[in-house]
Amino acid sequence: MLAKRIIPCLDVNAGRVVKGINFVSLRDAGDPVEIARRYGQEGADEITFLDITASSDDRDLILPIIEQVADQVFIPLTVGGGVRSVGDVRRLLNAGADKISLNTAAISNPALVAEAAGKFGSQAIVVAIDAKETAPGRWGVFTHGGRNAAGLDAVAWAREVARLGAGEILLTSMDRDGTRQGFNLPLTRAVAEAVSVPVIASGGVGTLDHLAEGVLEGKADAVLAASIFHYGEYSIAAAKRHMAAKGIVMRMSW
């Protein structure tokens, strides 16, 4: 049976890994290549890099990092953050990324999703959706770290990007991100059940139970977390054992 995936996420700023607490205060968690290699050895099913570098001049700093990681870590690598054009997608893929995650650019220019999927294949294009609850059982899409409403319904937007050719959706609850209170399960489930492509749940993981809930209740195909792994609180292997013990099919040898 197909295994559910655990994906550690590395937020990269000017060449270092950081994790935003509610996307505001940042703490340094170390060298991306070193961390990626360790995660690969610990059984990470994929690794996601999110480039949060503010200045576009510094954004190319991620390219040598991706190259070094791809030389040493042979699992799927996703890169997102600041990707605006087909040219950006191509540069990151050439550096060694397997999938590129589009967020704001997909909202301002949905044709980019279709164009990138057409050029590089749907398997290479992930659309990241940052969602916040706007009314009970309704979630809106937000940009700029949750500050700006995009005027889109998260579930409808997920359906739309899947139709445009996104091969996967990375869904982050902005209400939960950095809170360690667990995924927004109703949001995750609503999106996972609305689309035919895989959904990665993100935002809010504080315990190993939260990871299992994302799959069992949120119906996510994969779960993404950052801080619980970066600070050595839990290992990826321990997270996998925990999820497997809850009856979730996991990849347990590597």
Binding site: A3, R5, Q123, V197, P198, K219
Partner: peptide, 12 residues
Amino acid sequence: SGMKVPHMGWNE
């Protein structure tokens, strides 16, 4: 069935 296409991930 809730099964997703593409078939994406680690399988036996």
